[in-house]
Nucleic acid binder design. Structure first.
Lengths: 124, 124
DNA sequence: ATGCAATGCTAAGTATGTCAAGCAATATAT
DNA sequence: ATATATTGCTTGACATACTTAGCATTGCAT
């Protein structure tokens, strides 16, 4: 058993979890740094595993999730992102309104602008 | 007809997009601050919309996505998270669908018509 | 006109994520 | 035993997200 540390209800802290994941794959800090293509430095990963950093950037977690083959969203939650509200949002299901396929960014931009125009007109 | 404004080829910046979203809902900076329960200050939102901040934290984007009823993942991509593009490619076409939910039938109709107009124009 | 509230915005300050460089300890090899 | 490499880790230094307080206009009332 590893030495006891603060326990969060429902599991380990992010650092413990990351440490465990790395142990499971048997990689060294620098090997992970390599595997992430220098996106996560070994020094930083060390700090992460020792819980010295509260909220690493999503880029970091994304890269680590890739190396450890675990869920990026899970790491985000363990890092305390969106911690206050309910976990999974079902907003995506509602986006179906006006789901025009193959909308280019320029078109979306133009439509947003036009919508703002319409609503501004109606506002008074 | 909204004024034509050309800036970035291939789409607007995160700031422009956020600005358009807010315009579409007709909210003021401080109203958004209220709506996010002080999670996004009006001053900060202003900086965001003027592209003075490159990578706002996911918390911010999550809160804004909630207020504007748009896709959080879309905002994350626009903010350049996971920008290296390996994992984002397959989602592209689908996320590009228009992501505003509060459309009235009349608005949807008007937007469809306007979209048709735009595409007609480009066809030439 | 005049006071006043609201709107968008800026400036300066604080906090913190992130990195580069380097150190102590352990292992490995000659 | 000595040298070399590898491992985990710490320590500054730096970049930047984010806040608080305030300013300049504009609109809205009286």
């Amino acid at each position: 058993m590893p030495p006891t540390e603060k326990k969060q209800p429902g599991g380990s802290t992010l650092g413990e979890h990351l440490s465990l994941l790395r142990a499971a794959t048997g990689l060294t800090l620098r090997q992970v740094e390599e595997a992430t293509d220098k996106e996560v430095s070994n020094a930083y990963l060390s700090q992460l595993e020792k819980d010295k950093i509260s909220k690493p950037s999503p880029n970091i977690l994304h890269a680590l999730a890739g190396v450890y083959k675990t869920s990026y969203e899970d790491l985000m939650e363990r890092a305390g992102y969106f911690g206050s509200g309910l976990s999974s949002n079902k907003r995506r299901a509602q986006v179906a309104t006006f789901a025009v396929e193959n909308l280019t960014p320029e078109e979306e931009n133009a439509l947003l602008k036009y919508l703002a125009f319409i609503r501004e007109q109606r506002r008074k």
